[in-house]
């Protein structure tokens, strides 16, 4: 059985995995799940608390909060996951190149990465959004860039570690070329830790996306995102607290689930020691 499935055997991992599957499935099947549209306003119905008709209540425009939460999952998850995928790709290329070629390239990459890794992601993202402009694409690119440093570091460290292993020496003595060793031996072996940490980073990216949404920079209305919903809700805390509470819980529970499932996956893949070095 492959590791992602085995992770379900852990009680916490299984529960977390189920939640994640539920959220993703709900996001994908959103139009089938709810009788309401996410963007049709019904102003007389604004600020309704939870009821049989609106399970989580309505927002300031009388829209069903649960519907928006489910559609919001679409935005938040797809933006975060896409951003992290871009980030992982760029990070792996940079990290592998730095580790493999060494010399000034390695020094330059390490310097840039160390520095930008030390900057809070939220600042990097805010500056990038200022350059690119607000909206889903801007936020996606900003998040991607903010996390490149992390994956570059990790990939570089993995390749550096593997470079000295005997099986690499063996491949080299058998006359394998640079590209062959890098793509057939090093990168596949470095992949597992990178992918797991990419998964954990997706959790952080969801929070970052929500934070950018809080600053009004994410998906533009009426498209819902968890951050955007909380941003609107922050002005209504005493009038309709549910508008901010539920998206916040959705973020927290999903990120906890990602972490727990990721943790179970780490145990199953037995890569804890390889990740730790990069804390």
């Amino acid at each position: 059985m492959i590791a992602p499935l085995r992770a379900f055997r852990h009680p916490q991992g299984g529960l977390a995995g189920c939640w994640l599957i539920l959220v993703i499935a709900a996001a994908l099947a959103a139009p089938l799940l709810t009788p309401y549209a996410y963007d049709v306003q019904n102003l007389p119905q604004a600020y309704q608390p939870a009821s049989a008709r609106h399970w989580l209540g309505t927002d300031e425009f009388g829209r069903d909060l649960l519907t928006r939460l489910i559609y919001g999952a679409r935005t938040s998850l797809s933006v975060s996951a896409t951003a992290i995928s871009i980030s992982v790709l760029c990070g792996m290329v940079l990290g592998a190149a730095a580790a493999w070629f060494g010399g000034w390239l390695d020094r330059a990459v390490t310097m840039v990465v160390d520095l930008s890794w030390s900057f809070p992601e939220i600042l990097i993202a805010l500056i990038l959004v200022a350059i690119i402009g607000p909206g889903t694409t801007g936020v996606m690119i900003a998040i991607a860039v903010a996390y490149i440093a992390q994956f570059t570091r990790l990939t570089r460290a993995q390749i550096m570690m593997l470079k000295g292993e005997t099986f690499i020496e063996a491949a080299r003595s058998l006359g394998a070329g640079n590209a062959h060793i890098l793509f057939r031996h090093l990168l596949p072996n470095a992949l597992a830790p990178v992918l797991v940490s990419a998964m954990l980073a997706t959790g952080d990216a969801i929070i970052l996306e929500a934070t950018l949404g809080f600053f009004g920079l994410g998906a533009q209305p009426p498209v819902p995102s968890w951050g955007g919903m909380m941003s609107a809700g922050s002005a209504l805390v005493f009038k309709a607290p549910w508008v901010i509470v539920f998206p916040g819980l959705a973020v927290a529970v999903t990120v906890v689930a990602i972490n727990l499932y990721g943790d179970a996956l780490i145990t199953e893949l037995d890569i804890r020691s390889r990740l730790r070095r990069e804390a």
Binding site: G203, I207, M230, I244, G248, A252
Partner: peptide, 18 residues
């Protein structure tokens, strides 16, 4: 500790204020 770190800080801040 995990739960504490997964709440967006602006959200946590608002809840603490409330």
């Amino acid at each position: 500790v995990l739960v504490g770190s997964t709440m967006p800080s602006f959200w946590l801040g608002l809840i603490l204020i409330l």
